[in-house]
Design a protein around this nucleic acid. Structure first.
Lengths: 218, 218
DNA sequence: GCTCTGGCTCAAGGTTTGGTCAAGATGCGA
DNA sequence: TCGCATCTTGACCAAACCTTGAGCCAGAGC
């Protein structure tokens, strides 16, 4: 899965520059230039990393961060032009995951974003608290015991674990795991889900008749 | 994530002074005043940077460094009162990452610590603790025995060692080792990994089917 | 209780993937 | 220039995995 990055800054030249660097790394990049749009975007598109300037028109970066944190566990990397703001960023109770002081080198930013994506995801422990999914390591753990999954099984589980309790249709799973060009039967998903259940045990992946699957939320 | 710093010095005034400066930068700071406690602390708390005085009661700073290096890749900045020790610090086979000669200005030390934290992480010690990788010296050691690797083999190992346990795709490896302009088959990576395994032995580089490779995390 | 639809189980090809090996190409140092 | 180490490519093989289809089972509505 291509990591998805949202850049939030009101200076177009910076957006363009950084976007170029990130896209060269193979990331999917979106940009917005104000705080409200940023919150909207995170809600709708669920990016993996948000690069967020503190100084924004309308609501500022801190407020954006606070709002994002009420519904998302995306990584947030904050940008600030003032080094005296660093304390505030670091000390924040609902904290940013990293920060950079302007001016920064685009390479540096790319390195930081990469580092964030390597981290095990903050709130990625899903289901009843007995199931943990780590996308970076591609490991799944049930009650502390590691479970060996195939690539497809893991992908399905990771997508479901992104939002425990939220139903994902078979079509969406097909699309997300096999790619948009794949043509084939929904039934294929059933088989992999069955195999997945055989490995992680029952009670985690729930069937929603007529719709799809969801992960039990503890 | 707040960077974590360990200060090791037996002079309380210096500890207090430097601690103040580092905490004002937003770092989490611990202090200990002897070598054994320092090794213990690094093992338990896994700080990001260790600021280590050479002159210590009990075991000296060089011995502390050597022991730390057997299990940790934390950055180590050494402090010395004698300029003639600098050669030894720099020449050390398991080297410190930086050094400062006393008397130094606290600002200078803060700047050096910051610089260390900006460095891409070494990944000095990886896998089961039986494999050590030193990017600066481009050496790899298996259970204490040096292993001779080709440039390509070492590059692959170093990238994997940056984050043991984290899966790196073949595409990422190609990109990182051969550069973004390289066009060629993923299969090339397989061959080099096979050669690498032949030299360092099995059990370190693990295949993640359908995805890529990762280093076993001990 | 019956029927129908959607979901589950199971097993058998068929395909993909990664490991191995070897030969040719390349580049570097003597 | 020659020789050696290394890199790259391609072919082949075994194992893991995916996909398909058929039959069975469970839940919803009548």
């Amino acid at each position: 899965m291509t990591p998805r990055i949202l850049l939030v800054d009101d200076e177009t030249p910076i957006l363009d520059l950084v976007r170029g660097y990130l896209e060269r790394e193979g990331y999917a990049v979106w940009t917005v230039d104000d705080g409200l749009a940023a919150v909207e975007h995170v809600r709708d598109e669920r990016p993996d990393v948000v690069v967020l300037d503190v100084m924004l028109p309308g609501i500022d970066g801190f407020e954006v961060l606070r709002q994002i944190r009420t519904f998302s566990d995306a990584y947030v990397l904050m940008l600030t032009a003032r080094s005296d703001e660093v304390d505030r960023i670091v000390g924040l109770s609902v904290g940013a995951d990293d920060y950079l002081v302007k001016p920064f080198s685009p390479r540096e930013l790319v390195a930081r974003v990469k580092a964030l994506l390597r981290r095990p995801r903050n709130g990625r422990v899903a289901a009843t608290g007995e199931l943990a999914v780590d996308p970076a390591r591609r490991t799944a753990t049930v009650r502390g015991a590691a479970v060996t999954l195939t690539a497809t099984e893991f992908d399905i589980l990771a997508i479901l674990a992104r939002d425990p309790g939220v139903v994902v249709t078979r079509a969406d799973l097909l699309h997300a795991v096999w790619g948009p060009t794949f043509v084939g039967d929904d039934h294929l998903v059933d088989v992999h889900v069955a195999n997945l259940r055989g490995k992680i045990g029952d009670g985690f992946v729930e069937t929603v008749r007529g719709v799809g699957y969801k992960l039990a939320d503890g």
